[in-house]
């Protein structure tokens, strides 16, 4: 498997010859060049670190297997979470939220019905003779002519005048 030729003697091989493999890292290279420098300075053969022996083919295969199984495990975990979300969590949330929606709609209708019933009850009470409430009629109403209209009093085609005092008094309904 290894593309590295086994060195016969412990000499200082030229980097190009000694490290033909592209797999070697740059860091490794600089380390080596440092040691070369040191060796040149002292100019004496000293025993150097033996080159890292290439990994056995079996180990490499196992490493690859480990890496890929790790990747597979991640994929599986992610997919199982996704499956859980789509088959358990979403339906659960959906069912819950739908029930909430239904409850809210029911309550809204109930509220509308109660509110309108109350208005009706109030109106009925207001109609009783002992309620002491006065009906609005033309005699107890103050009609105020808008300024623009009073300047041109010929305009009788718009008899509906704005009167805030009328609109604020509910008749019950």
């Amino acid at each position: 498997m290894s593309a590295l030729p086994k060195p016969s003697t412990y000499t200082y091989p030229t980097p190009s010859k000694h490290y033909p493999s592209k797999q070697k890292s740059l860091r490794h290279k600089t380390k080596q060049s440092h040691s070369e420098k040191r060796a040149n300075e002292h100019s004496s053969p000293i025993s150097q670190f033996p080159p890292v022996p290439p990994l056995p083919a079996k180990l490499k295969a196992l490493l690859l297997l480990q890496k890929s199984s790790l990747g597979l495990a991640f994929v599986l975990i992610a997919s199982s979470i996704a499956v859980y979300i789509s088959t358990v969590r979403i339906p659960e949330l959906w069912s819950q939220k739908y029930q909430d929606l239904e409850t809210l709609q029911r309550q809204e209708r109930e509220l509308v019905a109660t509110n309108e019933s109350l208005k009706h009850k109030l109106a009925q009470q207001a109609q009783q003779e002992d309620s002491n409430l006065v009906l609005i009629n033309s005699n107890n109403t103050l009609f105020i002519t808008p300024a623009s209209l009073s300047s041109s009093n010929s305009n009788h085609s718009q008899p509906k005048l704005k009167q805030s005092n009328l609109n604020k008094i509910p008749m019950g309904y």
Binding site: S138, F143, H156, K160, N167
Partner: peptide, 19 residues
Amino acid sequence: IESLIAIEGIAPFNVESRE
């Protein structure tokens, strides 16, 4: 008609004379 006057806020015909 009385109720209509109150509900719709219809002013009398001769507004000026009532003021």
